[in-house]
């Protein structure tokens, strides 16, 4: 199973091939954003305080072997829409701190090697590519995986060529 978070409009989404059991999450439909209350860690582990379709994405990620993010480039970062969903997934890891790769990170809730793939579309310059690579790496360390890669797609029309089924 794959968990796929994207911010594509209907036209571009149609070009992608999905597997039957993929969990596809349209970030553009997410209304509530994280308010930093940490309930997903301290009150009802993995579940967000807001009860909607985005309350328990951490559990989909847990059941996946691939975690795919498809996002517009915003200054070398995920689009705010995609970011809104990602912030509601932190229950995927534990609140507790530990030292990993010489720096502090969260202890892992699940013992698994996820494969993290980030597909970035939209115009992008050299500095932004550097930021995105650093960001993808940082996220991979935080979720405890060594399998990660960012792919850059200049023209959204080509997303079906680049996207690996």
């Amino acid at each position: 199973m794959r968990t796929i978070i994207h911010d594509l409009n209907e036209n571009n989404l149609k070009k992608l091939k999905f597997n039957k059991n993929d969990k596809i999450i349209n970030a553009l439909e997410c209304e509530n954003h994280c308010i930093g209350c940490f309930s997903c860690w301290t009150k009802h582990p993995t579940k967000c305080i807001y009860q909607d379709n985005f309350s328990n994405i951490a559990s989909y990620i847990k059941d996946s072997n691939e975690f795919i993010i498809i996002t517009d480039n915003k200054f070398g970062c995920f689009s705010s829409s995609v970011k809104k969903v990602l912030e509601r997934c932190i229950g995927y890891v534990l609140p507790y701190f530990t030292i990993r790769d010489n720096m502090i990170h969260h202890k892992l809730r699940y013992n698994k090697q996820l494969s993290l793939k980030v597909y970035v579309y939209g115009n992008i310059n050299k500095e932004e590519i550097m930021s995105f690579n650093a960001l993808t790496r940082a996220v991979s360390i935080n979720i405890g995986t060594t399998k990660y890669k960012a792919y850059f797609i200049n023209n959204i029309k080509e997303i079906d060529n680049v996207y690996i089924n």
């Binding site: 954003h33 995920f78 912030e87």
Partner: peptide, 12 residues
């Protein structure tokens, strides 16, 4: 604040 190694949603 730093959220998921980047500026938080509202800031972005």
């Amino acid at each position: 604040p730093l959220y998921v190694d980047s500026p938080n949603y509202s800031t972005l």
